[in-house]
Amino acid sequence: MPTPASSSSAMWSSTGTCTWLCASMIELLPCTRADGALRVCPGVLPTLQDRLAELDRRADDLATARNLLRHAIVDTERSALDRNSNQSTDRSAPQ
């Protein structure tokens, strides 16, 4: 089973479904009872905890990237406004 540490490109199927997370969920199948309740299976909990930790890391990375992008957008908009304001001032100044 691909893991987040082994290959980031292997984590996503063509449908965008996270295959390593699905694989973790498949590991739960032998741990389910006929009534749908879970029973304890060795090794499943650490695997699920590892997957959750990886998702948390990726969420943090995405949040950082979003903040950087927001700052870049604000700075770009501010520069464009300043440039437009300076051009307007230059045109209205007496020559």
Results as ranks from 00 to 15, higher is better:
residue 5 A to G: 06
residue 75 D to I: 08
residue 80 A to Q: 11
residue 73 I to G: 00
residue 61 D to E: 15
residue 50 D to C: 01
residue 54 E to V: 09
residue 27 E to C: 10
residue 48 L to E: 03
residue 32 T to N: 03
residue 87 Q to Y: 06
residue 22 C to H: 07
residue 24 S to V: 06
residue 23 A to F: 10
residue 83 R to E: 08
residue 75 D to Q: 11
residue 80 A to P: 00
residue 90 D to L: 15
residue 28 L to P: 00
residue 55 L to V: 05
residue 14 S to W: 09
residue 48 L to Q: 06
residue 33 R to H: 05
residue 51 R to H: 10
residue 28 L to R: 10
residue 58 R to I: 09
residue 95 Q to Y: 09
residue 43 G to P: 01
residue 30 P to A: 10
residue 75 D to L: 14
residue 9 S to H: 03
residue 24 S to A: 15
residue 88 S to A: 15
residue 75 D to A: 15
residue 22 C to T: 15
residue 32 T to V: 14
residue 93 A to D: 06
residue 47 T to D: 03
residue 66 R to S: 03
residue 18 C to R: 05
residue 82 D to Q: 14
residue 66 R to N: 02
residue 23 A to V: 00
residue 3 T to Y: 00
residue 84 N to I: 04
residue 3 T to W: 00
residue 73 I to M: 06
residue 44 V to F: 03
residue 92 S to C: 07
residue 34 A to K: 13
residue 67 N to D: 03
residue 7 S to C: 15
residue 44 V to E: 01
residue 18 C to P: 01
residue 35 D to A: 04
residue 49 Q to A: 14
residue 88 S to H: 07
residue 25 M to P: 00
residue 42 P to A: 12
residue 85 S to C: 07
residue 33 R to V: 01
residue 41 C to K: 01
residue 35 D to S: 05
residue 23 A to G: 15
residue 50 D to V: 00
residue 12 W to F: 13
residue 37 A to V: 05
residue 78 R to M: 12
residue 7 S to Y: 04
residue 4 P to K: 05
residue 34 A to H: 12
residue 91 R to Q: 12
residue 33 R to F: 00
residue 58 R to C: 04
residue 75 D to R: 12
residue 40 V to P: 00
residue 32 T to G: 05
residue 39 R to E: 03
residue 8 S to R: 15
residue 28 L to D: 02
residue 40 V to K: 06
residue 60 D to C: 03
residue 12 W to Q: 09
residue 4 P to E: 02
residue 75 D to H: 08
residue 6 S to V: 04
residue 50 D to W: 04
residue 24 S to F: 00
residue 3 T to K: 04
residue 60 D to V: 08
residue 32 T to S: 12
residue 36 G to P: 02
residue 12 W to R: 09
residue 20 W to S: 02
residue 21 L to H: 04
residue 13 S to Y: 03
residue 67 N to C: 01
residue 25 M to E: 10
residue 54 E to N: 10
